Simulated scan of single mutants.
Amino acid sequence: MIDVAIFGAGRIGKIHAGNLVLQAGARLKYVSDVNPQAAQELAAQHGAQVADIERALADPAVGAVLIASSTDTHADLILRAAAAGKAIFCEKPVDLSLERAQACARAVAEAKVTCMIGFQRRFDPTFDALKTRLAAGEIGDPEMLIVTSRDPAAPPASYIKSSGGIFKDMLIHDFDIFRWILADEAVSISATGSCLTDSAIAEAGDIDSAVVSIRTRRGRLCQINTSRRAAYGYDQRFEVLGSKGMLQAANHKPTEVLASTAQSVSQDKPEHFFLDRYRAAYAREIAHFLDAMVNRVPVRTTIEDGVKALQLAEAATLSWRENRTIELSK
């Protein structure tokens, strides 16, 4: 039995806790949160105890921690958990500072502990199936990746101010998809953007719409288009063009019913909320994390993946702000 402590009892913490307790061989032992009521409610729901971080990390029975707290706490908790010899699952990003993220990666390597970063899109059944078919050579050598990533609505401007910006907060998932799907690294990146949906976002120093172009070491190309407003729902899809064809990963919809009448042909809009769209992915990533611990196999999304996605986010931010293409080391 693996005892686990979770740091963060908010929206994503509740999702991870609920998925954890469904795994055979795992038990949620401690819940810690700056909001005592939230911690107590989540602990009571799953038969766990409320504890502060020090107590949870000092307990030798705790084999792993799930970090689902605010972004500004991630790096500190990774460092403390690594020093305590605990396996770590941490939500993205590792940190908003590349230097801090790199320090975390070094600490994890020195402690020789498992550390997985929560890029749940790699565990989405549709995206995962596309990757499997791509790796099997179904469309030959991949040449171009087009990613569409749009939220139904923007978060409050108060959140935008501390989010690190659209490239670190939102597109960091798409940068991970780029590296995973093309199995390649960027040599140049160009980003442009505008504030088209809410002037409060511009006042907070950010943009809500962006286009990113990437060229890889092998000459492959990737384009990412994103917006914080898609009136029709949560728009998450991509396509890969290869030497022998194309693979597309479409949106998920509540149902696949297609209605055809004399007036129109219609179907459900895409699922509206990211927790609905990636429900299965969140469950699969926690199952993978625990499986990696039990069977001592590498995790699919490492802390190095987190660092490299953050590097791309920083380069995209610089490209947008300075209106130039950023050349990256080969």
Rank of each mutant, 00 (worst) to 15 (best):
A64Q: 04
C115M: 12
Q45A: 06
F123L: 03
E99V: 11
S32K: 03
H74L: 08
V65E: 06
Y30I: 01
R122Q: 12
M116A: 09
A43C: 07
P36V: 01
T132N: 15
L57G: 10
Y30T: 01
Q120K: 13
E41M: 02
L22P: 02
A44M: 05
T132L: 15
I78S: 07
T126P: 06
L96G: 11
H16K: 07
A103C: 11
V65H: 02
A82E: 03
P60A: 08
Q102R: 15
R106Y: 10
P93N: 02
C115P: 09
A68L: 14
L66P: 08
I12R: 10
L79E: 14
I67P: 05
G63L: 06
F89M: 04
V62A: 09
A17T: 03
Q102S: 15
D76T: 15
P36S: 05
N35G: 06
C90R: 04
Q120L: 14
E54M: 12
A64C: 07
G85Q: 07
V65R: 02
A61F: 11
G85T: 03
A107R: 12
A58K: 13
K86H: 08
A75F: 08
Y30V: 04
V62P: 09
L22N: 14
L66H: 03
Q49K: 13
Q37P: 06
P60Y: 09
I67H: 03
R100H: 13
T73P: 05
G85M: 07
G85R: 04
